[in-house]
Design a protein around this nucleic acid. Structure first.
Lengths: 329, 329
DNA sequence: CAATCAGATGTAATCGATTTCAGAGAGAAA
DNA sequence: TTTCTCTCTGAAATCGATTACATCTGATTG
């Protein structure tokens, strides 16, 4: 509980000298440095970050906004962010917005009020106008989800290309009747993944059927189950399903198995995200892997650069199709 | 970017008056208050938390320590903590320790250096000596995992009783040969759950067989698979498995199904924790539900009370056995 | 009318660090 | 000896808020 004054007194020097020792400045005589270090040890002194932050006007805390902490999609990204942040001497404040503006605002306030230096937003439902306004005065990076014309730098993958590849894979293994389990197209990724789906079908002259394109309200397990129930009611049933998220696909797997539909023999399934759990299902899930850890690391690095006043550009990373049991008998 | 001085100047009052308005003190004349509020609006002023925290020596930030963010067990607890914290005007800093002391120390430092007001530790591998030493000067609560003689208040369930009930359930539906998939007994919960397992068997005069008690190194899916592989190699195979964690149990389910062992007909399985995924498996998993959200809320409330200098006591909450498909044909 | 009091506001100290600027002292050069 | 440099150190301002205490005004009371 000692402060810098007491350390200075104990060491018989001024606070300025103590501060110099703390900040490893070289213009301190060796024996003075030793005296100060001993005083620090004796008093069990820890410099207050509040005092320092107030003076230097940086808190070295980064905010990470996600809609739901329970969504496993974010796990690796967060790990990437955290690793990179710690390397740069920053800490992260993980914030669950629950897709509610009032909770977003709590966290935006933390930045406005100087308690945090910048934001990595991964919330697709974020109030984009607020975000753009914030970005005028504060460092912000969007990760995974982004908006094209906001001027806010982002780190993401080419969703359209990734979806195209996933659907093309289904076509190559012989499927023609392919359903898309999508979510609300107000989300850019949903829109882009649908485009990829359509362009793959177009390329092979497979007609687009409206009844094969389903929309779910959320990305949960139950939504995937519900979508399959709807699909199984169709007269002309598809032989493959491309779901825009692993959780949807896993819900689909479960519902198919409950209905005695064999995967992949009766119905092939492809997911998106390669969450950990996608390897624990029976059968294991074919899915699109995003370089999540890398995305997180890059997002953090860029944010820190932005905080330091550098100009940063958006990045589009590569993805990878991981073929597993749900598409290979 | 305005500060309180500029607001005071703009409103034609002193900083003290502005501060009074900010803190909603009543001894401000109505029209003065209006002048100040207008100045605040005009300058787009946001009070700096750093200045405030430095002066009041409280940051209103709580640290939550967990070993792995990817462990779904913690999700609801965190939600509970966060809800309760926000209600009290606190924010939480979610910290993944990765069970590494050097990462723990980074976060402990944050408290020592006044950037955070207290800690909720959920890390069973936490360096307990460091924690006890920290607890002398700082507010700390243990949640879920705890140590008996540390003097640090905790919020948890009666693990022994819960395990006892789970195993008793298996006995009641006719099982006599029950395996325990446990983890390292250095963890208090592992120790306690084993006690519950033993006391249930004892109560029904079922002999304890060493080969039915397995230990895994971690609580992951693969560890559960591995344990089942070992069990299937036994000459005299058990007919039921009690795993001390859902992830272990889910790994077990998968491995059993891969080996053509039907659950629950050939082998019943019980897990522990009632993580979300436990309802998404095929068959769904019988498990012990901890009141996780409540645990989190109580932990946060107690921590805040502790920060305010009140004396707080430990709490043991109720659990519940959730019977699902993996134990009911 | 003087004394007392309450309400509204301002002055200035304070929290704990960093940092600018100036000064002391030692040694080198003239 | 004087002057100049260079190294090391300290005094004091500063970041942006809160708050104890002082002050002023006007109303109330005896």
């Amino acid at each position: 509980m000692a402060n810098i004054q007491q350390v200075a007194m104990q060491a018989g020097v001024s606070v300025a000298t103590v501060s110099r020792v703390l900040n490893k400045q070289k213009s301190v005589a060796a024996n003075t440095r030793i005296k100060v270090e001993e005083a620090i040890k004796q008093l069990n002194y820890e410099p207050s970050l509040l005092g320092r932050s107030l003076r230097t006007s940086e808190s070295r805390i980064l905010l990470v906004l996600i809609p739901k902490i329970s969504n496993p999609f974010y796990l690796d990204i967060i790990q990437g962010i955290e690793t990179s942040a710690l390397d740069h001497g920053y800490n992260i404040l993980l914030c669950e917005t629950d897709s509610k503006p009032e909770r977003e605002n709590i966290y935006f306030d933390l930045v406005k009020k100087k308690m945090a230096d910048g934001i990595i937003s991964m919330d697709p439902t974020v109030n984009i106008d607020t975000l753009i306004k914030m970005a005028e005065n504060h460092a912000i990076i969007q990760c995974s989800e982004y908006s094209n014309d906001s001027g806010i730098p982002y780190v993401t993958i080419d969703n359209e290309q990734a979806a195209y590849r996933a659907v093309k894979h289904l076509i190559m293994i012989g499927h023609q009747k392919i359903a898309l389990v999508n979510t609300d197209e107000k989300f850019l990724y949903a829109n882009q993944r649908k485009k990829g789906y359509i362009s793959a079908l177009n390329e092979y002259n497979i007609p687009i059927r409206d009844e094969y394109i389903l929309y779910t309200r959320e990305l949960g397990f139950e939504n995937g189950q519900q979508a399959i129930r709807n699909i199984l009611r169709l007269e002309n049933q598809p032989t493959a399903v491309f779901a825009v998220s692993d959780m949807l696909a896993i819900g689909a797997l479960k519902e198919l198995s409950s209905n005695g539909v064999h995967v992949p023999n009766d119905m092939a399934v492809v997911g998106f995200d390669k969450i950990d759990f996608s390897n624990m299902t029976n059968p294991t899930l074919t899915t699109v892997a995003q370089p999540m850890r890398e995305m997180g690391e890059i997002a953090a690095t860029k944010l820190i650069a932005k905080i330091k006043g550098e100009k940063v550009e958006s990045v589009i990373l590569n993805h990878e199709l991981v073929i597993r049991e749900s598409t290979s008998g």
